[in-house]
């Protein structure tokens, strides 16, 4: 579904590379976890994949369902079925969740030749999806993330994902800052959404999320690269040992190169 090949990226207009040759392949039906220390480039990878204009791809390619998407705008990527749950979901005062989601849903439907939903149909559809994440109706009327608690913002990202039903979702630290109840709700929601036709990439610092969601692969990102990939046991290993051992190996490798 997604193939990232030797991806290099920097902040638009600056020389300093943040992504320094990322390789990653994700297939339908898979759940991936990306871990790694602060500042290693995890969020940058997610944003570059979703088309954030702040970054410039200097080398490599991103293929989505075989098509090179590096030249596409963020909205066009969303129309193809890509989704980013933000690490820091921003507040948009004045635009309600309902307004955004209806506009999003119908735009994506239109772009894919599917039927748009009228306000009443859409409301029914939204109500269904609220259950996925145990959210109250009143959230629909509220301005996007405005005045939401940290946990509510994260839930709202999962809710948006449930509504838009993307093929591929990058979820950037959706688990951070959640208390145990919210973590369960969010993981349950993600598990409900995950299926054979879609793929999910969880960016996380914590093994605890992976107690609820079982990844097929765990990757470690360091210094702008994926330095190690393995099965779910890697997460436990990291939880035990931290990144020190890997850091040594990686910097040795780095020197050897």
């Amino acid at each position: 579904m997604l193939e990232i090949k030797n991806l290099h990226a920097s902040v638009e207009g600056e020389d300093q590379e943040i992504l320094k040759g990322v390789n990653l392949t994700i297939n339908k039906g898979e759940i991936h976890a990306i871990m790694g220390p602060n500042g290693s480039g995890k969020s940058t990878l997610a944003k570059v994949v979703s088309g954030h204009p702040e970054y410039e791809i200097t080398d490599g390619e991103i293929l989505f369902e075989g098509e090179d998407i590096t030249e596409l705008d963020a909205d066009e990527r969303a129309h193809l079925g890509m989704f980013l749950a933000f690490q820091y979901p921003i507040e948009v005062p004045g635009i309600t969740n309902r307004t955004l989601l209806r506009e999003s849903y119908n735009t994506i439907a239109r772009e894919n030749g599917r039927e748009e939903l009228d306000p009443i149909e859409f409301d029914d559809y939204l109500k269904e999806k609220l259950d996925v994440i145990d959210m109250k109706d009143e959230f629909l009327e509220r301005s996007i993330n405005t005045g939401f608690s940290g946990g509510e913002k994260k839930k709202n990202e999962v809710f948006q994902m449930a509504v838009l039903n993307p093929k591929l979702a990058f979820m950037d630290e959706t688990d951070s800052g959640l208390d145990i109840d919210a973590l369960k709700i969010v993981s349950d929601g993600i598990n409900k959404i995950a299926g054979p036709e879609n793929a999910i990439v969880l960016i996380t610092h914590y093994q605890r999320l992976l107690n609820y969601i079982t990844p097929d692969y765990v990757h470690v990102m360091m210094g702008g690269k994926i330095v190690k990939s393995a099965g779910k046991e890697l997460a436990l290993e990291l939880e035990d040992q931290g990144y020190e051992q890997l850091e040594k190996e990686f910097s040795l490798n780095g020197e050897a190169q």
Binding site: D75, A78, V92, S104, T107, I108, L164
Partner: peptide, 9 residues
């Protein structure tokens, strides 16, 4: 960008 990434032009 938030809105753009949700599919809005």
């Amino acid at each position: 960008f938030y809105l753009h990434s949700r599919g809005l032009t």
